[in-house]
Nucleic acid binder design. Structure first.
Length: 267
DNA sequence: CAATGATCCTGTCCGC
DNA sequence: TGCGGACAGGATCATT
């Protein structure tokens, strides 16, 4: 599922495709996929891309017209660069039309993904409250400890909370906690500063490695050019039978989600 | 306020 | 071969 490394990988592919081409419009083929916050007389198109950036799992495309698109892939969303034959493909919920006969197809089997069109000045208020960017300096052992030291929540649940850390999902949280040697069920308030430090370091390490390998193609994640990521080849516990030490990996339900862990390596 | 559960949705896989 | 059910899980909203 698209988490920070996958979203960043998709965005890094989208930016050069749009390049200096003209963005002609935004079409919606499934009710609710496009959230249009403009009044009818507003002119968002045509425009060019001014800048594209990521915040948590959100992609933000700011256009020269002063308007912006916020794109969230949720679970099955994909952005596919393709020739424009004027027809939406299977599961295509929306499309960004581009000059030169191309379109960026928003393909999303389970329809949870969203594209929001709004004035650039309102992007900040339109995004939900998000925690620290895990790859930036503000995120570290001190931040995690400050955020979580008093919480009784299991550490895994806390790391999935986008208000604490922006961009983590089920796959990377499982991998991070294995790397840190911390059991996902441990309550946050029972973790010591050394364990918070290991979790923070593991977060940065795992995300950097995943980014280097263009994300994880579990199920059907693809880049804009339809290439798969490669980090699935480096997973140590998620959907694995045994950990690198040869211990059996356990799969257990934790607040409705599958948690993969090695009970021997993770204390 | 914190924690849990339901909800949205469809393709895939498993057992019978 | 077909069918029902479990499962996948990000984010939001409702409930306890």
């Amino acid at each position: 599922m698209p988490e920070l490394p996958e979203v960043q990988t998709v965005l890094s592919g989208v930016i050069p495709k749009l390049g200096s081409k003209e963005i002609l419009g935004l079409e919606c083929y499934y009710p609710g996929t496009v959230i249009d916050k403009l009044s009818p007389q507003d002119q968002a198109f045509p425009a060019r891309l001014r800048q594209g950036y990521r915040r948590g799992k959100y992609m933000i495309l700011e256009m020269t017209s002063g308007f912006a698109l916020i794109i969230h892939l949720r679970m099955t969303g994909k952005l596919v660069w393709d020739k424009d034959d004027g027809e939406p493909k299977a599961h295509e919920r929306a499309a960004i039309l581009v000059s030169g006969g191309h379109r960026l197809r928003f393909i999303d089997i389970r329809t949870f993904g969203k594209i929001t069109l709004l004035p650039s000045a309102r992007v900040h208020e339109a995004l939900p409250k998000l925690g620290a960017e895990p790859l930036l300096q503000g995120f570290g052992a001190a931040y995690l400890s400050e955020q979580l030291a008093k919480s009784k929540r299991p550490i895994k649940t806390a790391l999935l909370d986008q208000r604490v850390v922006a961009g983590l999902g089920n796959i990377y949280v499982c991998e991070i906690l294995y790397e840190a040697g911390v059991n996902p069920f441990r309550p946050c308030n029972e973790l010591d500063s050394e364990e918070f430090a290991r979790i923070a370091a593991a977060t940065k390490l795992i995300l950097a490695q995943a980014l280097m390998h263009n994300g994880t193609s579990i199920s059907d994640f693809r880049r804009v050019d339809d290439k798969a990521g490669e980090f699935q080849n480096f997973l140590k516990v998620y959907q694995q039978e045994s950990c690198p030490q040869g211990h059996e990996v356990k799969k257990v339900k934790q607040s409705g989600r599958s948690t993969y862990l090695c009970p021997v390596c993770q204390k």
